[in-house]
Design a protein around this nucleic acid. Sequence first.
RNA 1: GGUCCCUUCGUCUAUCGGUUAGGACGAGAGAUUUUCAUUCUCUAAAGAGGAGUUCGACUCUCCUAGGGACUACCA
Length: 520
Amino acid sequence: MAERRVRVRFAPSPTGPLHIGGVRTALYNYLFAKQHGGDLIFRIEDTDSNRFVPGAEDYIIESFKWLGIKFDEGVSFGGDHGPYRQSERRDIYKKYVQQLLDTDKAYIAFDTPEELDAKRAEIANFQYDAQTRGLMRNSLTLAKEEVDKLIAEGHQYVVRFKIEPGRDVLVNDIIRGEVSINSSILDDKVLYKSADELPTYHLANIVDDHLMEVSHVIRGEEWLPSAPLHVLLYEAFGWADTMPRFAHLPLLLKPVGNGKLSKRDGDKLGFPVFPLEWHDPKSGEISSGYREKGYLPEAVVNFLALLGWNPGTEQEVLSMEELIKLFDLSKCSKAGAKFDYVKGIWFNHQYLLKQEDMDWTPAFDKLLKENGVDSTPEKEAQVVSMMKQKVVEYTDTLSGQTKKRNISFVSDLWPLTKFFFVAPDSFDKEDKFIKKNWKENAAADMSELADVLETVTDFTVEGMKAVVDVWAEQNEKKPWNPWRVCLVGAGQGPDMYELAAFLGKEETLNRMRYAIKVLG
RNA sequence: GGUCCCUUCGUCUAUCGGUUAGGACGAGAGAUUUUCAUUCUCUAAAGAGGAGUUCGACUCUCCUAGGGACUACCA
């Protein structure tokens, strides 16, 4: 077959926020398209009018914008294969449904949902197919006049695909190889419903993919069972020679327990399952998002890309450009991948450390505001004014000495840095560090050190060093850990001289005297 | 129940008949460090089970077991 332009699509249903599994599917489509210099299409599959959720479409678009996954055409992106919203393609589908009807590949069925339920209750494992369609009310069993009459009288009907039984249908899948299913186990799927004049997924999908010249269908494994139906549909339309190639991706599974990853697991286990925070318009329920949790889009992309695929090398930190270069559908794994969100945190850590020039000030500023308020209004005012003075300076300090810490999120900074802004006001005597370093003579030593510091006029690292190091050596003191107890209240923080210089003479001495008083 | 897909360390995975079965996350230990952390080093950890095919199987075939998906006038 001649080389076709690569055209792939991501076609979500706007029934809610975009699931992280959907994000990965879209990502793989994007990587594949870009690698081949092809197009990525964004199509909205809103053929179920009952499940429409306002805001979902915008949410999905914004998610991809954040993630850096760019579409070439589709809803909100333009293009000359539109419209890209299925609800706006009614007339197109009608035409093709009629074609199937005219060629005897489909038929009209009048059975109501209630009648179908009754049949299902009556016959075990009932399926609307070659075996049973003769028992039902459809254009195959009813006289033509009767059918016309029912339609004229306004009875609702559906169009069903007439599947010929006893045929092995082959699906050639890039990831799974050849999959064979016998057509006898397929049912006569509903292709179109007169009630809302809209097709169902299967029909709309095939018609759109054909008309939009889609070359590869890359989607989740949940579609594999219906792939034979789709193959049959291409054949029925006479489009078999331009049928897209299929690739069914393995599913994302729950990190613990069994089953595929679902909305619920996320917030239960403490990780988001959505790219962006989602406010459900009906229930008002809020689901957390990667963006709001402090993940960097690059990290999310990298993490997701490696869940079900890897380049076969030992490199794991990969930029979008590298992913595009290396991605290979045939190297995708076949088995579902447990969603190991702990590794996602590690990826964020990696990217956070890589952001040499990233301006952390806004995020950190927000963090301080969130955490700055805890006790009295006086203290609050003090902290706020201190933050204002220090925040810029602190950011510099940050890149110099604190950045290479075990930080996976900007929000991790707070517990690691609060002592820059807030003096310890209580000391946990059971704390391992305090217990070990605040011995009987600590108060006396600190008091002595405070006196020494009092004499320092040049309160800089060098200025203090010149005086304190001499004092420590002459008196055989090792004041650093007790000093740390005074200034930090825990076993953390930068070099003591740097910390003291940052805090300034007054604050340093205040904290020391306070600790001496409280700890004794 | 039926149909299809899948099965290597706890997790993500490499290996496309011949390897001491490799890497990463996580875990543990050690070194470095005035603290915490960083960094570095090291350790434990796997081919579901059973039959074949083959000189040789993690890799191919079959069976069993387990997991997953689908089974709507939803996508």
